[in-house]
């Protein structure tokens, strides 16, 4: 948190020093601030912040790729597949041990990645009910969510 404020402060100073105030200038300032915080991480004690930020950027990239794949797949499903070829059903996904914020992020990402949407979060925050267009292999879907989404989210929230 302290490292993030420092990073933000450097971005603000950069914004005030430069000629024009625009979103691009602020982004450059934030990047410079991040390089500074990363370079002196041993002194500032910001290893955790640097590591989580990089994990966050990596996750955003992975998520964007998944999101694009999802859109291509949905377009294919809508335009080319017959409805008799679909095998939709509900599957459960175990989210025991995650904080409510992590569950929120995860359910949000599940809705936007290929083949699955979140339908319900159980009242005790233990299971998600997910609707899949092709639910023939529920274990494969669970493993996929584990690999691409859950691991990525946990890598920057913890």
């Amino acid at each position: 948190m302290k490292s993030f404020l420092l990073n933000l402060g450097i971005a603000l100073i950069w914004l005030l020093l430069s000629q024009e105030t625009s979103a691009v200038t602020f982004a450059i300032g934030f990047l410079i601030g991040f390089v500074f915080v990363a370079a002196f991480r041993a002194v500032l004690g910001s290893e955790h912040y640097v590591r989580n930020s990089l994990a966050f950027v990596r996750f955003v990239l992975v998520f964007m790729r998944e999101f694009l794949v999802a859109n291509v797949k949905v377009a294919w499903t809508v335009l080319a597949r017959r409805r008799t070829a679909l095998h939709p059903n509900f599957i459960t996904y175990d989210v025991a041990g995650l904080t409510p914020f992590e569950i929120l992020l995860l359910s949000y990402c599940i809705s936007l990645t290929p083949g699955t949407t979140t339908v319900q979060v159980s009242d005790d925050f233990q299971t998600l009910i997910v609707h899949a267009l092709d639910a023939d292999a529920p274990d494969a879907i669970r493993a996929d969510i584990d690999r691409t989404l859950k691991r990525g989210i946990l890598s920057f929230t913890r």
Binding site: F67, V74, V78, L86, P88, S111, L112, T117, H131, L133
Partner: peptide
């Protein structure tokens, strides 16, 4: 085109967002 409410929500959630 899609057969039921839940399948339709797939199309809406993904294609509409992007």
């Amino acid at each position: 085109r899609l057969p039921d409410v839940l399948c339709r929500s797939h199309a809406v959630a993904k294609a509409l967002t992007l």
